[in-house]
């Protein structure tokens, strides 16, 4: 007995293949991670005598632009999966490439934002608001970098699997996509919380 079952096909009674369950379990722990930081934000803000309005320190148009960038990258990600389902490998490459590109755009914009803050001598130690802002966005940026690494692998060397085991490769892209959409989803909550409130 040497074979690992349900790598490609779903297990009949659960309706899931292993990695599908695995990624949702991972995301559950991620929800608790960001959830705990989000709780910390709520409590620090509640306990604070005064708390700055996000837009008085942060640049809302840039934040909104980055939101659009991430949403767009989510769309291209799901298109790349759909392209594989349609058996169009070229279209897959294009869309996944766009996803990675947009992720880089997001990071560059973020870096410019950070740089602008540091120029004005606004550091994590300056205030609790800035501390939680830098912590949440930096942790999110680490997740973006993680996504770039994963997607970059599937765009480059990992794509070879498409020839040998297409079905398994489609699963992998779906899993990578679910992770990437989660990164998008986190930002969808971070943006209004930090910038608009």
């Amino acid at each position: 007995m040497e074979l690992m079952p349900y790598i490609v096909k779903e297990r009949p009674d659960t309706g899931l293949f292993n990695a599908k369950l695995g990624i949702w379990l991972f995301l559950s722990s991620e929800v608790m991670l960001f959830g705990a930081l989000f709780s910390a934000y709520v409590l620090l803000r509640t306990g604070a005598p005064h708390w700055p309005h996000g837009s008085s320190i942060l640049n809302v148009p840039i934040g909104a632009f980055n939101t659009v960038v991430l949403i767009a990258s989510s769309v291209t990600m799901v298109f790349s999966w759909a392209a594989l389902k349609e058996n169009k490998f070229g279209k897959f490459k294009l869309n996944l490439g766009l996803t990675i590109l947009l992720a880089f755009v997001f990071l560059i914009v973020k870096a410019i934002e950070y740089g602008a803050k540091f120029e004005h001598h606004l550091y994590p130690k300056t205030s609790t608001f800035l501390a939680i802002y830098f912590t949440l966005t930096a942790l999110h940026a680490l997740h973006v970098i993680g996504g770039i690494v994963v997607n970059g692998y599937f765009w480059g060397p990992g794509a070879r699997m498409w020839q040998a085991e297409p079905e398994r490769f489609v699963n992998r892209i779906e899993i990578a996509g679910i992770y990437w959409h989660f990164v998008d989803l986190v930002w969808i909550f971070l943006f209004p919380t930090l910038y608009l409130l």
Binding site: S29, F34, K125, A131
Partner: peptide, 25 residues
Amino acid sequence: LLLAFPPLEAAAVMQLLDRVAHTSF
């Protein structure tokens, strides 16, 4: 382990920043 450890990880991130970046979480 899956659902209880992440909040400690979040807390550890904040304590680390308190120590190295001089924040005051």
